[in-house]
Amino acid sequence: MNIFIELWRAILKTTRLPLSISQKFHLIFVLTKLAFLKIVAKKQTPAKVRLFGFEIVNYNYRLLDYLVKEVFVGFEYNFSAKTQKPVIFDCGANIGMATIFFKWLYPEATIYAFEPQTKTFEFLQQNIKNNNLSNVFCYNLALSDEEGTITFYESDSQNLMGSILEDRVVGTKIEVKTKKLSDFITQKADLIKIDVEGAEKLIVKDLVENKLLSKEKIDQIIMEYHHKIPNQKSSMGTFLKPFENNNFEYQIRTDFQQLGIFQDMLIYFF
């Protein structure tokens, strides 16, 4: 898609966001700046932009622009906490864009951020350090249903993407350290955000086995669910059952274009 068509669509979405007029103008300015930088500075590494007072770096401007649109224009991780000091788990933190979004929403939040991919984790650490974000704890590991190691596929295409599923990523096969999310939940979680490219079933299995998938332990979950992964049978009904059994309601946000193809589904559990 043409860069300026993408920009125009993002601007239209921005005008409908629940932001002040000055915030909308600022976001539109940043989007316009990124559109031009994707053209004139596309090979610059690292790419850098200031957004709502945060300095954010990424591998290149294409990736940086994509994440700004996904998180700050898409507003996918917007949520209402019952406290000004929520406890948040960012599972699949990538470079920290969602973590920064959460700190923008709730400056006093405590955030635990998990990212297994080495280069991506370096950007995550840099973004936390550059913005002096307090009470943000970063872990270079994958979350699973058991502690140990797991085969991980790390992209070779400079898109900072990784997955435990070979069909999700074309790249290098490595081994990464795993831990259970349940080991980190020592108090009620106000939000758990999960975007782990196919490993969400393992995380949920761990929470169920350790009796943490309950409204008493977790207030809200925002999860990217990966549907119709190649060579895998559909199992969404089975996946949702533990949430229904533990009194979670849910809403599903997704697009549909063609039968039988991979589909990202954003599920809000509350």
Score class of each variant (00 low, 15 high):
116 P>S: 09
115 E>F: 05
260 G>L: 13
192 I>A: 03
223 M>G: 01
56 I>M: 05
27 L>W: 05
188 K>D: 13
20 S>F: 13
249 E>W: 15
192 I>Q: 02
93 A>C: 11
98 A>S: 10
102 F>T: 15
257 Q>K: 15
28 I>D: 07
113 A>D: 09
76 E>W: 00
71 V>R: 01
68 V>P: 01
162 G>A: 12
237 G>S: 12
184 F>S: 01
266 L>Q: 13
202 L>Y: 08
20 S>Q: 11
37 L>H: 06
26 H>Q: 11
112 Y>F: 07
223 M>N: 01
264 D>L: 09
236 M>I: 06
87 V>F: 03
150 I>L: 13
171 G>I: 04
151 T>W: 14
127 N>C: 12
31 L>G: 03
137 F>K: 03
221 I>P: 02
8 W>E: 07
48 K>E: 06
201 K>S: 05
49 V>D: 00
255 D>V: 08
247 N>S: 11
195 D>A: 12
183 D>I: 05
181 L>G: 01
225 Y>N: 04
49 V>G: 09
214 S>G: 08
87 V>A: 00
122 E>V: 00
268 Y>N: 08
8 W>N: 09
126 Q>M: 12
139 Y>C: 02
179 K>R: 11
269 F>M: 03
268 Y>P: 05
173 K>Y: 04
80 S>Y: 10
237 G>W: 10
179 K>S: 07
140 N>W: 09
97 M>Y: 02
183 D>K: 02
64 L>H: 03
17 L>I: 14
153 Y>K: 02
156 D>V: 00
36 F>Q: 13
61 Y>L: 10
150 I>P: 05
251 Q>V: 13
178 T>H: 12
16 R>A: 11
193 K>Y: 01
5 I>D: 12
38 K>A: 06
248 F>E: 02
53 G>K: 10
103 K>E: 13
69 K>V: 06
104 W>G: 08
151 T>D: 15
124 L>K: 09
191 L>A: 03
58 N>Q: 09
51 L>Y: 05
256 F>G: 09
220 Q>T: 13
28 I>F: 06
120 T>V: 03
97 M>S: 04
49 V>S: 11
59 Y>A: 03
257 Q>E: 05
32 T>Q: 04
146 E>S: 13
140 N>E: 08
33 K>D: 07
188 K>A: 09
155 S>N: 06
138 C>H: 06
94 N>D: 10
188 K>F: 11
221 I>N: 02
55 E>N: 14
70 E>V: 14
